[in-house]
């Protein structure tokens, strides 16, 4: 029951020697023996061990149904876990899925979804300011100023008073990124952020994410965009059937995959 909510960055010293991660940097996420079993009995994650260092960009790839989305959704408590242990930004979570811990984690973790999931009844600006005002209880005026700056950053300041349905998919996804960033997260999760976009819109969104990576944001990105992974990722994680099959630098993964399943997957998408 290690669900103590106290932040414990120093605990990274306890990283086991067998970890794939180079020892030293603080960890943003560490999962150990993570199990996810859906109520219908389907096991989506099988004993997943993964560590993400602060400032690292990890890209997760894998065929559909491999559990990659489920994995990052456990990181902010959108999916409960049934076994193993999860540490996110120093908060510990295990199979009891303590809601207090989950809500603390969510204050520091931003997430971007495949289908944007903007709030259709709120303007772009309101989408971005909603959480800072109501969750962080920050001053409305400063939040608004910050939000406009963020929208400027992602290149849609002019649309601030429009509604989501008036924007293109690429613009909506950039708003979603701004919305997640508005809470000043220490970790960003991207769940197939470009899969629902028209091909010509993919670039603008990837550019935004790339810029974010350049600023040193810790990110876990589920995507099929090989070019993006190659350029931006510090590490590629390949998953299949709820397990991590291979972890490698993009260079190694795309040119010289070790595992048969990785090779098969890459032969299909490249």
């Amino acid at each position: 029951m290690a669900s103590s909510a106290a932040p414990s960055h120093h605990s990274t010293s306890g990283v086991q020697s067998g970890d794939t991660l180079s020892a030293g940097p603080e960890l943003a996420v560490r999962s150990q023996g993570l199990d996810k079993i859906f109520p219908n009995g389907f096991q989506a994650l099988r004993k997943v061990d993964l560590a993400v260092a602060k400032g690292e960009v990890v890209v997760i790839m894998g065929p559909s149904g491999s559990g990659k989305s489920t994995l990052i959704r456990t990181f902010n408590g959108l999916e409960t876990i049934q076994g193993g242990h999860l540490e996110v930004l120093g908060y510990h979570l295990d199979a009891d899925n303590n809601q207090k811990v989950v809500s603390k984690i969510r204050h520091h973790v931003g997430m971007v979804f495949q289908s944007f999931n903007l709030f259709p009844h709120l303007s772009i600006l309101e989408n971005v300011t909603l959480a800072p005002v109501w969750v962080q209880k920050r001053d409305r005026q400063t939040v608004k100023k910050d939000a406009l700056a963020l929208l400027d950053h992602v290149g849609i300041r002019e649309q601030a008073h429009k509604y989501p349905s008036q924007l293109s998919g690429g613009q909506q996804q950039r708003v979603a990124i701004a919305r997640a960033l508005a809470l000043s997260p220490q970790l960003m999760l991207f769940d197939e952020p470009t899969s629902a976009l028209d091909p010509e819109k993919v670039k603008e969104v990837l550019e935004t994410i790339r810029a974010l990576a350049a600023e040193g944001m810790t990110m876990v990105v589920v995507t099929h965009e090989v070019g993006f992974a190659r350029e931006v990722a510090d590490r590629v994680v390949f998953m299949d059937e709820g397990m991590i099959v291979e972890e490698a630098s993009p260079q190694t993964f795309f040119t010289d995959p070790k595992e048969e399943r990785s090779q098969l997957f890459l032969s299909r998408i490249l």
């Binding site: 959108l78 931003g110 979804f113 709030f119 909603l130 959480a131 109501w134 919305r179 809470l183």
Partner: peptide, 23 residues
């Protein structure tokens, strides 16, 4: 997905109802 977005932003169940679902 709307609820997931609200939850991922840290909105409490009450706030989710009042700010996202009910409107």
């Amino acid at each position: 997905t709307q609820l997931e977005a609200a939850r991922s932003l840290g909105l409490s169940p009450l706030l989710t109802v009042a700010l996202v679902e009910l409107p």
